[in-house]
Nucleic acid binder design. Structure first.
Length: 150
DNA sequence: GCCAACGTTGGC
DNA sequence: GCCAACGTTGGC
């Protein structure tokens, strides 16, 4: 089983929204590296941190599981959506997504600055500068270290 | 609001 | 295929 961290801006979609919805398509990904991770690496049952980005403070807020295989993101064909992509061919959709399922909120949020301070997380992808991927792989070791901060 | 990092686009 | 211009992400 693999572990992930997935970013979302809480103003747009937060862990509390997912708690309410229980299960939701993780739509709007328009980055090929992330699409390929969805397609090639994510498996049903994988676990992912729900990370609140672009907010104060940025932090890991909860845990969810991957609930589907990758399938086409419907928003790419919806002209009203901000994620619309007119160049995507319905016969061969460019953008994929996975469904995620709410598991739980962390007992407390673990902030980015805490993660940065952690000696054993210096190599963690989220802590490296210029990291702009909205979905990043997490090793089992990193996963456990982060959960231990809870 | 600023800006560093980095992906994408398009002219050549 | 190169690379300048531009757009986006996201911490600060």
């Amino acid at each position: 089983m693999a572990y992930w961290l997935m970013k979302s801006e809480p103003d747009v979609y937060s862990i509390d929204d997912l708690k309410k919805d229980k299960r939701e398509p993780w739509d709007g990904i328009r980055n090929y590296q992330v699409r390929n991770m969805f397609r090639d690496q994510m498996k049903i049952g994988d676990l992912a941190f729900f990370y609140h980005s672009n907010c104060k403070p940025p932090a890991v807020a909860g845990i969810m599981s991957i609930a589907s295989k990758a399938y086409p993101d419907a928003t790419q064909f919806d002209p009203k959506s901000r994620y619309f992509d007119g160049k995507s061919d319905p016969e061969n959709p460019r953008w994929l997504l996975v469904d995620v399922k709410y598991k739980r909120k962390l007992k407390r949020e673990i902030t980015l600055s805490e993660l940065k301070e952690h000696k054993k997380l210096q190599d963690f992808r989220l802590n490296q500068r210029g990291n702009r991927l909205s979905v990043i792989p997490v090793t089992k070791k990193e996963w456990n270290l982060i959960l231990n901060l809870e």
